[in-house]
Write a protein that binds this DNA or RNA. Structure first.
Ligand SMILES: [Mn+2]
Ligand SMILES: [Mn+2]
Ligand SMILES: [Zn+2]
Ligand SMILES: [Zn+2]
Lengths: 166, 166
DNA sequence: AGTGAGAATAGGAATTATTCCAATGAAAGT
DNA sequence: ACTTTCATTGGAATAATTCCTATTCTCACT
């Protein structure tokens, strides 16, 4: 039985002797409602729509609080702004190097189990991260066409193929 | 048959139309000789011993060049300075959260193969990263003793157990 | 050997992402 | 109400990296 976000948040915070504030609730809400692994700046922009007076420092504070409560994971797949993920299931991340987007990937339980076995004796695990860096494969047909008209374009251009809905 | 670093470097650079310079060679040498996943600043300090006139910007440039040549991998297991790894075998990383050190972990070929299968169709893989974050397990005996004298100490204190030689 | 074009380095300025700090505001305990 | 503690804000400070420009080096060509 999964309780609503408000309750979850409120309980986790209470468990750490922290208060449930509008800012924390909004930040958490933003993460839950658009699971695209936004950066702190992204979250700031989104929350600002609902609470224009919020400050960036507060967003950083709230994110840190949520991470410490274990409700959110900080994702660092490469240098650059940290991103934030409210998906608590053990999962992998796919970084689309063209669009810059990050997607969640299911991680089969038996595979996860095998990964855990790799940890050397004498260590106590705090987290495993599995990150895929990839780019949309060019369909064979287009590849042929492209090889005629050469030329490098930068930035995002084509809609991703068979993409998981956000 | 594995050729010496000088040759490898020289060939890779040539392959990209780049020059073999003393700075690039020293930076690469430093990475090969102490495989502790140093940051750019670490590399800078080490190279400076051999070439005091080198600049930090050049170290960054050389590292980027080596990464682009595919001789070195940039490692970002968390926010903070990037670290650099000259180990080209498919391997995992272990981050010791207490000492801050990063170690290479063997990744069995069959497991690596299974990981590759997780990549969704329509993507072409550029890299997989598998990172373990862990801390030295407290041996049972000490755990008991510690639970008497409570108190939180910060920073590194105790020599790591059963550690892989650096 | 001399010259010019392009590549690379060095040093410092600029930028980015984040953290720190001090003042103010809100909530909880008494 | 009064006090203590927690949280938010805005701005300053910091850390890591990137950018910029002058200078140096290399190589190719005379
Ligand atoms: Mn990537
Ligand atoms: Mn870590
Ligand atoms: Zn995720
Ligand atoms: Zn490594």
């Amino acid at each position: 039985m999964v309780s609503d976000p408000h309750t979850t948040l409120s309980q986790r915070l209470a468990g750490s002797g922290l208060r449930l504030t509008p800012q924390r609730e909004l930040v958490y809400g933003v993460l839950l409602s658009q699971r695209d692994h936004p950066s702190a700046e992204d979250v700031f922009a989104r929350v600002k729509g609902q609470l224009p007076s919020i400050s960036l420092a507060t967003v950083y504070n709230c994110l840190e609080t949520l991470v410490n409560c274990g409700l959110v994971k900080q994702v660092n797949m490469e240098r650059g702004p940290s991103r934030y993920c409210p998906n608590l299931h053990e999962h992998a991340h796919l970084h689309d190097e063209i669009s810059g987007r990050v997607f969640d990937l299911e991680l089969p339980a038996d595979l996860a189990a095998r990964l855990h076995l790799l940890l050397p004796a004498g260590y106590s695990l705090s987290a495993i991260e599995l990150n895929f860096h990839a780019r949309p494969a060019v369909p064979l047909q287009e590849a042929a066409a492209a090889s005629h008209a050469e030329g490098q374009e930068a930035g995002a251009e084509k809609p991703a193929p068979t993409q998981i809905a956000s």
